[in-house]
Amino acid sequence: MIEIEGVSLSHRGTPILHEVSLALPKGELTALIGPNGAGKSSLLSVVARLQPLQSGSVAVDGLPVDRTPSRELARMLTIMRQDTGFAGRLTVRELVGFGRFPHSRGRLTDEDRERIDEALALFDLTALAGRDLGTLSGGQRQRAFVAMAFCQGTDYLLLDEPLNNLDMMYARQMMRLLRKVVDRRGRTVVIVLHDINYAAAYADRIVAMKDGRIVAHGPPNDVLTVGRLEQLYGYRMQVHRIDGRTMIRHHD
């Protein structure tokens, strides 16, 4: 369980988060949605202790993130940020292997190697394992970074826009994989998504944010309503139910 209590954040006088409180239960796939600048990435950063906590509290499985040793947290929670801009000469296997660092501190064991192979296979990277990151397409690199996060083997995965650069086939595959990770392995996934239809199709829970506040929070059908979406994005969309699923037509 991730418990966020009264978290506010500002950067050089500009407020980013206002008194955010939220509880995310274990074993669910939660999607953070909202317009650009809503504070979704900042909230993930605070939970993952990348941003120091300015006020309020954040606890993961009861451990406060600002007072728990970073190494211990790294075995409970992983975060993948938006493209790190790294295009150095590391192979995909090497990068994914660094996900094991919190466990083995760089001296890979046989178990680590098994986990690396598993992550590579799961994210369809086995054939690319020996390739340099710099030679990959944006989508392939994105998959490699998500595979690294998965390889860290933590109960909680926080992913900031993991569908960036992915084509439809890989975006669908990524969401199905994350779904599987939640359903079969009991992991908890919190993900920032821009395409609300992916959120509608795959998330257990949607947290809608705007201007640093949580506007709505609940199962997809409760959050994805015409009124809420207009409040969030500032224009009217059509919300359809097709074969019992919610589909949002957000373009003309």
Partner: peptide
């Protein structure tokens, strides 16, 4: 060496992997 390589991935990646 491993910590240095991770540091080259940037501050966020380092913190996420539990490096100070």
């Amino acid at each position: 060496a491993d910590a240095l390589t991770i540091a080259s991935l940037g501050k966020d990646a380092s913190l996420g992997l539990g490096l100070d």
